[in-house]
Design a binder for these strands. Structure first.
Length: 298
DNA sequence: TACCAGGAGAGCG
DNA sequence: CGCTCTCATGGT
């Protein structure tokens, strides 16, 4: 019977630190109160966290929870990551403000496709587009009673079989031809996403950037969030703002020099530093908006 | 109404 | 290179 498959702390030891960020940067998971619900690969799952364990519920019995431990990156010890950060005040402040923030190990194709759809879109809009794609072209997944229907993220092969107008109809806009071309090249094996993690950083990045609609920023996102390249440091508008405000020395650096600074200064796990700076800067914007009375939250 | 959003690519000088 | 323009579309 469904609802009967909780690990009850058996396979999942709680990661160090207070809490974890369980929402996907671009995914459709939702945090509802003390729960997080979403689809990880082909499975629907509801997560919650008690004192020392992560509690997981699925709609179908599981033989193993390795897939979840991998997604949550439970083997990563956060303190060891933070120990590699340079001890400069801005980064320490960002870490203090986002204590417990961790990275997930996402599916490469889902990650790539989502970020291709991300350019000049707000995060809520990206989630909406992804939701439409899943509903129209993804395989349905089993959920617990009372939970809204859910779908897997559509495979590259499935999206490759779509027409450009069909993808535009999902609100993909000018990104539709990029997504379609990427889906085709992934589906026919011209780009091996699952093999990225075995290659050198520069080679994996070049392979991603050979895809239309994939520049340095999106490539680094895929490398960091799905490829296991902890040093990859995506520079988006928020990180750029954070860097210019917190590190005055890099204000007048040309783009090439700025990227060099990011990849060297923040060390072998710079991508984690990037996430702390990103979250820190965005949360500052939220506070300002609320104070200025322009925020949407009460 | 005007402006902006987790960019990328093409066309300039 | 470094700058500017364009590409859809929804929200504020």
């Amino acid at each position: 019977m469904p609802g009967d498959h909780e690990p009850r702390g058996v396979p999942l030891s709680r990661p160090r630190g207070r809490g974890g960020t369980l929402s996907r940067p671009t995914g459709e998971g939702r945090a509802e109160g003390r729960f997080w619900e979403g689809v990880i690969g082909p499975r629907w799952v509801r997560l919650s966290q008690a004192a020392d364990v992560i509690h997981a519920e699925t709609a179908v019995p599981q033989d193993t929870w390795d897939w979840l431990a991998d997604y949550l990156q439970l083997e990563i010890e956060l303190e060891r990551i933070l120990d590699t950060f340079p001890p400069d005040p801005p980064l320490l402040e960002a870490v203090a403000a986002c204590r417990g923030l961790r990275l997930l190990r996402q599916d490469p194709w889902e990650c790539l496709a989502s970020f291709i759809l991300s350019s000049t879109k707000q995060i809520v809009q990206i989630q909406q587009i992804v939701g439409v794609l899943c509903e129209r072209y993804g395989e349905p997944v089993a959920v617990l009673a009372g939970v809204a229907p859910c779908w897997q993220f559509p495979s590259a092969r499935r999206l490759a079989s779509c027409s450009e107008p069909e993808l535009r109809a999902c609100k993909a806009g000018f990104r539709a031809p990029y997504l379609l071309a990427a889906a085709r090249r992934v589906a026919d094996g011209q780009v091996d996403l699952d093999g990225l993690s075995r290659r050198r950083l520069a080679e994996a990045r070049a392979a991603l950037m050979s895809l239309p609609g994939v520049g340095r920023k999106i490539a680094d996102c895929v490398l960091l969030f799905a490829g296991g390249f902890a040093r990859a440091f995506p520079v988006d508008v928020w990180v750029l703002r954070a860097l210019r405000e917190l590190y005055p020395g890099c204000r007048r650096l040309p783009p090439r020099r700025l990227l060099e600074f990011c990849e060297t200064h923040f060390g072998p796990h710079g991508g984690y530093a990037q996430q702390y700076l990103f979250q820190y800067r965005r949360s500052a914007r939220s506070r300002d908006a609320v104070q200025a009375g322009t925020g949407s939250s009460p």
